[in-house]
């Protein structure tokens, strides 16, 4: 029997769902944006603004001056560039090495596959603190000590296991039939990967890149141990923060946050590429 339901029931249900949806979105935005906003206020507010209480919601008496002053401080720009370099190396190597490994895990079956996956994760079981001394010694021998490349390599070691396992899941999500269709219509295995699999896996690969970037950008221990003068931003800030005035600390925090936001913004097109809907 199909009876017509009272009109109000189905109507109110979606509207309350929509309310829930929007309040959820608002809460998430606030969760992310309010701290960033407060940090920015601290960074631009100058020496007095930091201690102003109660905080004004709207920025008063802000100027770019304190932040610029911070940027001109000895070592800030250099360490910022070092951080970018290390993160760039980490992202590039994690994707270039991790994605093929993830593809192999997703598409081939070989003896010891599960063991291999476990092994990949086990590389993270050794705390860096234990490895610090031998690493430092070998890095000095190899001429990698106190270089951006050295830090990038160590960060790659940290990010690579996750890159391999995450991309495995991503490649599993690309229907095998599409790849087979590419083979039948004239592709070699590699061509099929480049023309069909990678474009379809792009959102996931972009997310993996963000992930690798964040791992490297936030890592402080290895970066502190393995560098002296060529510090990354986190390592640099860690050493100088204690002696800095409050608004410098906020400026440092802002500088730490910004690149991640910019990077995520840059790859957003791939993060949300649902084919035929968002791509123009």
């Amino acid at each position: 029997m199909t009876t017509t339901l009272p009109k109000t029931a189905p109507a109110s249900f979606p509207s309350s769902r929509r309310l829930l949806l929007w309040s959820g979105i608002a809460a998430l935005c606030a969760w992310v944006l309010v701290p960033i906003y407060l940090v920015a206020l601290g960074a631009f507010g100058g020496r007095q603004g930091v201690y102003l209480w109660p905080k004004t919601v709207l920025p008063t008496g802000v100027s770019i001056e304190p932040f610029l002053l911070f940027l001109r401080t000895e070592g800030v720009v250099g360490s910022f560039l070092n951080s970018l370099g290390a993160a760039g190396i980490t992202v590039a190597l994690s994707i270039l090495l991790g994605a093929p490994a993830g593809y192999a895990l997703a598409r081939y079956s070989f003896p010891g596959k599960d063991g291999y996956r476990l092994l990949v994760l086990l590389t993270r079981a050794f705390p860096l603190a234990i490895l610090a001394l031998p690493l430092t010694v070998s890095f000095i021998k190899l001429g990698l000590y106190d270089t951006v490349v050295g830090v990038g390599l160590i960060h790659t070691v940290l990010a690579l296991p996750f890159a391999a396992l995450v991309t495995q899941g991503i490649f599993l999500g690309v229907p095998r039939e599409l790849e087979e269709a590419a083979w039948v219509f004239g592709c070699t295995r590699l061509q099929a990967v480049l023309r069909v699999v990678v474009p379809l896996a792009m959102p996931g690969l972009a997310a993996t890149a963000v992930f690798a970037f964040v791992i490297s950008w936030n890592e402080v221990f290895a970066a502190s141990v393995l560098t002296v003068r060529n510090r990354t931003l986190t390592a640099y800030l860690l050493t100088v923060l204690a002696e800095s005035p409050m608004h410098y600390r906020f400026a440092g925090g802002l500088l730490l946050i910004l690149p991640s936001v910019v990077f995520i913004f840059a790859v957003r097109r791939y993060l949300f590429a649902i084919w035929g809907i968002s791509s123009k």
Partner: peptide, 20 residues
Amino acid sequence: LPPKDRGLAMVFQNYAVFPH
């Protein structure tokens, strides 16, 4: 021989048209 060298074309059960 790999599929591409067999001189054939195929229509798959779930179409397998490339979404991108």
